[in-house]
Write a protein that binds this DNA or RNA. Structure first.
Length: 651
DNA sequence: AAAATAAGCCAC
DNA sequence: AAACGTGGCTTATTTT
């Protein structure tokens, strides 16, 4: 973990820079004293660490982590230059880190190449140097674009908020002033009076006074207006049955829970610019829908008495969902990406890349560039704001089904390996292998597994599998994603809202021609139990300390982690090697291309537009053969790469 | 007023 | 009973 980029300094300058790093679960803090705060000066400082109890039961206590070398970056913040350490310092760092690393679940005893130090020398030191370069390079952000997007988002939020509050205030007058962003208030509104699921006997009050910001300026002479005032929020409906609960036993008011109340309504009214059409559009929606069409309305329909009121409730709740999702995009992405805190003068944005995960993946923070909205979720096309500098282009290259390929390799699963060898749409192929009737349809050429448009052909001669058997393919796809994470039948049953038995059957179908996966997973669990660790492709291990003294719940978590860690960790190994390979490529360097970001199975580079195509081919080559120019896996590594002016266009 | 927690949402 | 792995971050609310 702590090799490349450990700490971040916050700008709290009282008495010194305070350093902070890592995750919420194991945060590390320390201070750089005043006398070492000169710009550009190297300094040494002890950093103190704190650990918390983790999910698998390993417990932390307050420990001194390490003395590390700290540099000041010219324009931003303190960071550790570990890549510039000389060999003696490296050795010292290694010696002192070794025990800490092992405590933090990292060992390399199973590493085919030898000790932790070998691994460090061969992979982590060059990898760390790459991360440092990437952080320094940063990504260019188009702030003007974001500011336009912000206006649109704020306007759409207002439309939805007005709609919802107008509706809610019919049932509870003060709802006009409520904070729709407060889950407490929303919960009170819909579930007031309900019993806690975990603590029977504990009830949510029917009505409750809650604080809201006091924007109604009741200016009294000589007194400043109080910051908050209280409003009374009462339950507006009886007998709404919650389907999802939070950890503490109260009904969840997450987007998913609310959407299930509202039902599958088309709320495309917010994608049009005509806010005035609001009422009209929803009315037309209602008139088109059959009154008793229970499939398009959610559980709120009946709870609010059906009919007009029921419909209005569903549309209002749908609007509430809109508000929440818009708010989330604004406050998590649109605003911070424009902020000064994380951007430099040139408009390039620099995150921290850390090797601090259990599996060896990277994490990114300040800001986290690895969780920018993608695909349908990216309704404001936020990724379009990540652009190449003038004259430059971005290359975005990602692996196709990396983790599934890793799983196929690790488990040596014939069926999966064959499917990958055959190429084409893996999920369709999974669906075919799962369902007899699909297989027959394919064999009798009633549907096409996949289709390469030939010149002269406009559409396939027979339907594609993914269209003809969409539901089955979707199931197969979800299973493909879930299996490697160790999902159980119970979890599937809940997600799909089917019986446990049904989920079991579907799971059996998935495993029916993938027996090797099942036995591989069993082996991993045994390994975890017998050796207290499991291994990745390159021999890194994830440890499960004090495995003997864990509860059954913790043991279940360890089992799933034991299945997941080799897959996720090996994928991380592949991604790391690919990046080292890219960095090592001299041609790419001559052409002026540099790595900017990694998002687990995806890398982003920037360089001159004129050499984009050449560079793209090189990147694909590096990623396909990431181990010193070869691919040691028994499965091909598919890479999809695109060049474009921005991140959105390249996906 | 600051720190901690709960809940939620984003990514792969 | 039984919640899918790995992360970061924001807001509202409660605790100190």
């Amino acid at each position: 973990m702590h090799l490349a980029r450990l700490w971040d300094s916050s700008r709290r300058l009282d008495g010194g820079y305070s350093l902070e790093g890592l995750t919420n679960d194991s945060r590390v803090m320390g201070v750089v004293p005043k006398e070492l705060q000169k710009i550009g000066k190297r300094s040494m400082k002890t950093i103190f660490g704190r650990k918390k109890i983790k999910k698998d039961g390993s417990e932390g206590k307050i420990t001194t982590i390490e003395s590390v070398e700290v540099l000041q970056r010219e324009d931003r913040e303190l960071w550790i230059s570990y890549s510039s350490l000389d060999s003696m310092s490296t050795l010292r760092l290694y010696e002192s880190l070794k025990s800490k690393l092992e405590k933090k679940h990292w060992t390399f005893d199973g590493c085919p190449r030898g000790s932790l130090y070998d691994f460090y020398e061969e992979y982590w030191r060059p990898f760390g140097a790459i991360l440092v370069k990437m952080e320094t390079a940063g990504m260019l952000v188009d702030r003007a674009y974001l500011s336009e997007v912000e206006k649109v988002a704020v306007a759409q939020r207002k439309v939805a908020a007005d709609k919802f509050q107008k509706w809610a205030s019919k049932y509870c007058p003060d709802a006009k002033y409520m904070n729709v962003n407060s889950d407490t208030q929303i919960r009170q509104l819909f579930f007031g009076g309900i019993e806690n699921r975990r603590n029977p006997g504990e009830f949510l009050p029917k009505s409750r006074a809650l604080k809201v910001p006091n924007d109604v300026n009741t200016v009294t002479e000589g007194k400043k207006a109080p910051k908050y005032r209280t409003i009374e929020i009462c339950s507006i409906v009886e007998g709404l049955k919650p389907e999802v609960f939070t950890a503490s036993g109260w009904p969840s008011v997450s987007g998913d829970a609310l959407r299930s109340l509202a039902g599958k309504l088309k709320t495309d009214l917010y994608t049009t610019e005509d806010a005035e059409d609001d009422e009209y559009v929803s009315d037309s929606e209602i008139s088109v829908d059959d009154v008793e069409d229970a499939t398009s309305y959610g559980t709120a329909y009946k709870a609010f008495g059906g009919g007009k009121e029921g419909k209005e409730a569903c549309y209002a709740i749908a609007a509430l969902c809109e508000i929440c999702s818009i708010d989330s995009l604004i406050s998590n992405f649109i605003l911070p990406l424009q902020g000064n805190r994380i951007s430099c003068k040139e408009g390039r944005i620099h995150c921290s890349l850390n090797i601090n995960t259990e599996t060896g993946r990277l994490s990114a923070r300040a800001p986290n560039l690895q969780n920018q909205p993608a695909l349908e979720k990216d309704r404001y096309k936020i990724r379009q704001a990540f652009v190449a500098a003038p004259g430059n282009s971005l290359i975005v290259a990602d692996y196709g089904q990396l983790e599934l390929r890793i799983l196929a390799h690790l488990a040596n699963c014939r069926s999966m390996l064959d499917a990958f060898k055959a190429g084409g749409d893996f999920h369709s192929r999974t669906a075919m292998n799962m369902y007899q009737h699909i297989r027959e349809a394919v064999e009798e050429k009633r549907v096409l597994l996949e289709w390469d448009p030939q010149p002269g052909q406009e559409k396939p001669p027979v339907p594609l599998l993914k269209d003809a058997f969409g539901a089955e393919r979707r199931k197969a796809k979800m299973l493909n994603f879930s299996i490697a994470y160790g999902k159980t039948a119970a979890g599937l049953a809940r997600d799909w809202k089917v019986s446990k038995r049904e989920a079991d059957d579907t799971l059996d179908l998935w495993y029916s021609d993938r027996k090797e996966v099942k036995s591989w997973q069993r082996e991993q669990k045994e390994l975890a139990y017998e050796k207290s660790e499991v291994y990745t492709l390159l021999g890194r291990s994830r440890r499960f300390p004090n495995i003997a003294s864990v509860s059954s719940k913790q043991w279940k978590h360890i089992e799933r982690a034991a299945i997941n860690a080799p897959v996720q960790g090996s994928a991380a190994d592949v991604a790391m090697c690919a990046m080292i390979e890219i960095e090592r490529n001299t041609r790419l360097k001559e052409l002026g291309w540099t790595l900017l970001l990694q998002v687990h199975d995806e890398v982003i580079l920037e360089g001159p537009s004129e050499s984009a195509d050449v560079a793209k081919a090189i990147v694909v080559e590096c990623m396909s053969k990431p181990f010193y120019g070869t691919n040691i896996l028994s499965v091909d590594l598919a890479v999809d790469a695109k060049c474009a002016q921005n991140w959105y266009a390249a996906k």
